[in-house]
Amino acid sequence: MLEARLDTANLFKSAVDAIKDLVQDCNFDCNDSGIALQAMDNSHVALVSMMLKAEAFSPFRCDRNIALGVNLTSLTKVLRAAGRDDTLTLKAEDAPDVLNLVFEATAQDRISEYDLKLMDIDQEHLGIPDTEYAATISMPSAEFKRITTDLMAMSESVTIEATKDGVKFSSTGDIGNGSITLRQHTPVDKPNETVEIELSEPVALTFSLKYLTNFCKAQPLSNQVKLCLSAEVPLMVEYGLEGGSYLRFYLAPKIGD
């Protein structure tokens, strides 16, 4: 059986909130290392990969592999009933029909309990190759959100170009064009505002802004976001969580004919 308790429901609420508009039905794959999720969006352009490691929970218990087939719209409805600071416990039997969720507000001695019906989801699992990326950009997640939102007003695509001078986001549309350039920036007193560019070779790729703005719904999960780029492979956008847990998005590039 699965039993996994989070000190605050916040993490799980925000993670589900971040992916629910991109993927609808997906399996939460539980085993002794934690709870993982991999799902593609309907048009097979983007892939979500989430890992909540066992260490993120206390306690965490899962003796065998359990796949929880969940409709994320339904899960969102249930999670809306959880206070951000409630403790959240997920429980399921070995071959479950339901996922049991318990929210506890310890200060108020209030306990709420929900059973969410599960479904059988036959999902294709993709192998994500280990990639040495040509460029890895770490930047404030709020800044990335602002850039994607601002450029969305200009065009439906953005070209991300990483060079030794910095990273440039540029868009060209019917009304004109725009660009934002960020240079490496490491303020000692404000680590959350760090912009770091690790570059093995210059790279430029074009992506759909519709997907990138969608990924930015994960912004509340982490102050920093990591963009990993290599020529002709999907972009990886990573929101790192405590203890090595993560929420990653992969986005296929736009390719010239």
């Binding site: 097979h44 993709l126 192998g127 759909s208 296929a252």
Partner: peptide, 14 residues
């Protein structure tokens, strides 16, 4: 003219 790629052409089934 640019075309949107598919994630499945990069990541194979495992």
């Amino acid at each position: 003219k640019v075309k949107q790629g598919s994630i499945m052409s990069f990541f194979g089934s495992s």
